[in-house]
Every structure is written in structure tokens, then in C-alpha cells.
Design a protein around this nucleic acid. Structure first.
Lengths: 191, 191
DNA sequence: TTCATTTGTTGACTTTTGTCAAGTGTGGTT
DNA sequence: AACCACACTTGACAAAAGTCAACAAATGAA
């Protein structure tokens, strides 16, 4: 069941042989998070790669005044991790918190990198995941640095992810746009 | 000469066999940029990976009002490219412009990915380059989004890259910090 | 050296966004 | 139904950074 969702996700990139799939499946474990439960806390070192089979995760960081800032949302069929922590075993910049009750597949980091080395298809998947993560944050950051509040809303929400509005409280959307809820409220009123 | 610098850079990650090195060397070409010359213009699709043997490159983007924003600096011994464009063959978000007279080694994208597929060491190097690029922009963005002007200067310049001050005009540093030159000037006066 | 251009600084003012406080609305619990 | 917590909105005001204009300082070319 859950495994199948995962296999389908891999098959976007390669079709594992049955022996490869055996090896992969061996390393998977399952986990659920209740709404508001933490997958990883800021400062922790990330030790596994996570794949979301159902639900939604919010990435957030804390600034010098301990205010929370949302940097990313991830949902069904995406891999999620604080990648720099996952890659370099350094403390994570961000916390990952469930926005809804969420079902996950986890692969331990050591196991995952062993698969990357031994299964070329997994190497490819890893590259694609990194590339996609890079692209997503690049755009988010480009918009946050170069556009005022109203344009951020238009681009990052209305244009790119209008469905967020149905799933995510506005206060987190405001935080994703790098503005506060009051400002978002004023932006939305003017439209 | 130039090749040697490049080989040394690779050797941080792996030691190519002499036949591997032959294949790699075959694909390298050399290029120089005068100060202010453009390596890649925003909107262009990036078709090669570049390695800097001497000099310095500035990455910059243009916002909705066509104001320029510096997002990154790269110098000797670093690979540089607008990675999302390089990876996905999409128009580059940013222009790459020489800050000084600069010497480069280039590898055509198709050749490079062929090397990634055939030489495991190059695959590793590519992963490391991507990971490093990801980490660098992640920190830059984290600071820009979460800290006010004075703290951005302290962290990104004084702490991380104080040598920038000797090589880069303040107006570009201001732009890298997401503030204007007047604000930077005021920040520096207060210290 | 001199002159012109670019770079950097400063002050006065404006704009944008944030902060604080009060209020409305909604959903869930008892 | 009544209450509570939470999400969201609104207004008045404050703070941070941007804009514009003037000028100073450094750099480079003639």
C-alpha cells in the first residue's frame, strides 16, 4: 500500500529491478505524525530522508528574535528533509512540522547513501531531488528578495500554489511570504 | 598550467586515473573575461559549467523595477553556473558578470553530463558542487530573510567573507546584503 | 597634474512594512 | 446553547529602509 506509492514515485525516474526493489524496501520504515507534531527540530541533525505519502509538512526557521518564518511547504509524493543538515550532518537551520496528520516513509541516511552508491537509479533520484529542492528555494528566495508584499502573494500563492489557500492557515502563508499576517490581510483586501 | 589548477580542484574529491584525466582534459576549454564582461546573461540558457582559475564573478538578478541585486560571489577554485538553468535548460534567473579580469575553464554541459555518467568521481564532484551551492545560497537567504541590515553585514561580510571588502566595491556588497548603498554606509558608520 | 567619472557619504523626507491593541468571526468542547 | 481558543481583520502609530539630492573622495584617462 504505502510502499506502492513510493515505488510509483521512484518510477518517475527509473524502474527498479525486483532485486533492487527488495534492497530498497528493506530499508523503508513508516511513521505518522499528528498535526503540529515535529519531524525534525531546528538544531537537530537530520538522520533520515522522508517521503510524504499523505499530509503536509511546513519548514520553519527562527530568527534572532525567535520569530518563526516558514520557508517551504511539502506534501504528498515529495521527499522532504532539511537538506543541508541531511547532507553535511550539521544542525538543521529549520524545523519541520506537520500541518495535518501526516503519513511518512523514512529511510535512514546511511542506508540511503549506500543505495545511492549501489543503485544507479537511486543516485539519479537523489540528484533530481536535490535539483528540485534547489530550484524551489531559489525561486522562493528570488521573489522574497526582489518583490514587495503584494507581488509575493500574487506570484508565490495565486500563481504557483493557489491550493495552499485551502489547506494552510493564512498566518503560515504570510510567514512564507516573509510578511506578517496583518500585512497579508491588507494585501488581500486590496485585490 | 591552468589544467593543473583544475586537476588539483578535482583531487579534493577523487584522483582520476590517467585515462579518466585524458577524457576530462579533452573536454576542457579556456576563456578569459575582461572586467565587467558577461559570462551569462539573465534569460539565456546556461550551456556550460565554468571553473574559475583566476578572478572573480558576480551573480546578479533584476527585479520587477529592473534594479540589480547581487546574489553570490565566486572566485578562484570554484565552479560557477546559474545552476537551475544549467540543470533544467531553462532561462537563467541571473546574469554572471566578471568583477575583475577573470580566467576560466569551461566544460560543455552535454560533455559534462556524459562525464558524470561515465566517471564516478565526476558524479561525486557534481554532487558536491550542487550541495555546496545549495548550502551557500541557503545561508545567504536565511540571513537576508531573518536579519536586519546591520546583522546582515556583520554575518555575511565581517564574519564569513571579510576579504570581500578588499576586492569588491561597496555598492555590490550592499546589493548582496539586499540593502542600498546609503543604508550600508550608515550601517558601517555606526560600528 | 588635471579633469571627468565613478564610488561612497550624509541629510531630509517618503514609503513600506511592522507593532500593538482592539475587535469580529468561526469551530470545537462541554 | 455557552464558552473558549484561535484565526483573521482593522486602525493608529512606529520603525526600518528606500529615495532623492547634494557633496566628498577616490580612481582613471588625457
Amino acid at each position: 500500500m504505502n510502499n506502492l506509492v513510493f515505488k510509483q514515485a521512484l518510477q518517475q525516474y527509473f524502474t527498479p529491478t525486483s532485486s533492487e526493489w527488495e534492497h530498497i524496501q528493506d530499508k523503508l520504515s513508516f511513521r505518522s505524525l499528528a498535526k503540529d507534531e515535529c519531524l525534525i527540530e531546528q538544531g537537530e541533525v537530520c538522520r533520515q530522508l522522508t517521503f510524504i505519502t499523505q499530509g503536509m509538512i511546513r519548514y520553519c526557521q527562527y530568527d534572532y528574535d525567535n520569530n518563526e518564518h516558514t520557508t517551504c511547504f511539502a506534501w504528498e509524493n515529495f521527499f522532504c528533509a532539511p537538506f543541508s543538515s541531511f547532507i553535511h550532518s550539521t544542525p538543521s537551520f529549520e524545523s519541520l512540522i506537520a500541518l495535518e496528520n501526516t503519513h511518512l516513509i523514512e529511510i535512514n541516511k546511511v542506508d540511503f547513501f549506500a543505495l545511492v552508491e549501489t543503485i544507479p537509479g537511486i543516485n539519479l533520484v537523489y540528484r533530481k531531488v536535490l535539483e528540485a529542492a534547489y530550484l524551489l528555494t531559489e525561486k522562493h528566495n528570488y521573489i522574497l528578495q526582489n518583490y514587495p508584499a503584494a507581488e509575493r502573494y500574487q506570484t508565490l500563492v495565486m500563481q504557483d500554489h493557489p491550493t495552499l489557500l485551502q489547506r494552510v492557515p493564512l498566518k503560515y502563508i504570510a510567514s512564507y511570504l516573509g510578511i506578517n499576517p496583518e500585512t497579508l490581510s491588507r494585501v488581500r483586501r486590496k485585490i
